[in-house]
Computed example of a mutant assay.
Amino acid sequence: MEELIKFGLLCFTTFFTIINPLGVMPVFMTMTSNLTSQQRSATATKALVTAFFTMVGFAFSGNLLFEFFGISVASFRVVGGIIFFMMGYDMLQARLIRTKMQDEDAKAYVTDISITPLAIPMICGPGAITNSIVLMQDAHSFALKAVLIGVMFFVSLITLLVLLASGKISQALGDTGNKILMRLMGLIVMVVAVEFTVSGLKPIVAGILKAAQ
Rank of each mutant, 00 (worst) to 15 (best):
R95L: 14
L144E: 11
G80V: 04
D90A: 10
A128K: 00
S141R: 09
D105E: 15
F58I: 02
V110C: 06
S61T: 07
T99D: 14
V155Q: 02
I71S: 07
V79Q: 10
D90C: 06
K46L: 11
G70D: 01
M86V: 12
L96T: 11
V134T: 14
E67T: 13
A94K: 13
I133W: 03
S41Q: 12
S41E: 13
F53P: 01
A44Y: 07
A51Q: 04
Y109V: 02
T99G: 12
V134C: 01
I120H: 06
A44D: 07
C124M: 05
L64F: 13
F52S: 02
L48Y: 02
M55D: 05
S132D: 03
G150D: 03
M87A: 11
D90W: 05
D138H: 12
L118E: 06
A119N: 05
Q102S: 15
L64H: 05
A108S: 12
I123F: 05
V134E: 11
E104C: 00
L64R: 06
A143D: 12
L135M: 13
T130S: 15
R98I: 09
T99M: 04
A44W: 03
N131D: 08
A44K: 06
R98L: 09
I83D: 11
I133A: 01
I71T: 13
V56N: 02
V56Q: 01
I123P: 04
A143V: 12
M87G: 00
E104V: 10
S41T: 14
Q93Y: 08
V110T: 11
P126L: 09
Y109E: 09
S75A: 15
T130R: 09
L65A: 08
L48D: 01
D90G: 15
F60D: 01
T45N: 08
Q93G: 05
R40C: 09
S114A: 15
I113R: 08
M136P: 00
I82V: 15
T54M: 13
T130E: 09
A139V: 07
I123D: 02
T43W: 06
D138T: 07
R95I: 03
S41M: 10
A146P: 00
L48F: 03
G150Q: 06
M122N: 06
R95P: 06
G88E: 00
P117W: 07
V155G: 02
R40Q: 15
N63P: 00
A94W: 04
K100W: 04
F58V: 01
V147F: 02
Q38R: 14
R40V: 10
D90H: 13
S72A: 08
G125C: 09
V78F: 11
G70S: 03
T43M: 13
F85G: 04
I115W: 07
F52G: 02
T130Q: 14
P126W: 10
G81H: 12
V155D: 02
A51E: 06
F60M: 12
Q38C: 04
V151G: 03
Q39N: 10
Q102P: 00
P117V: 10
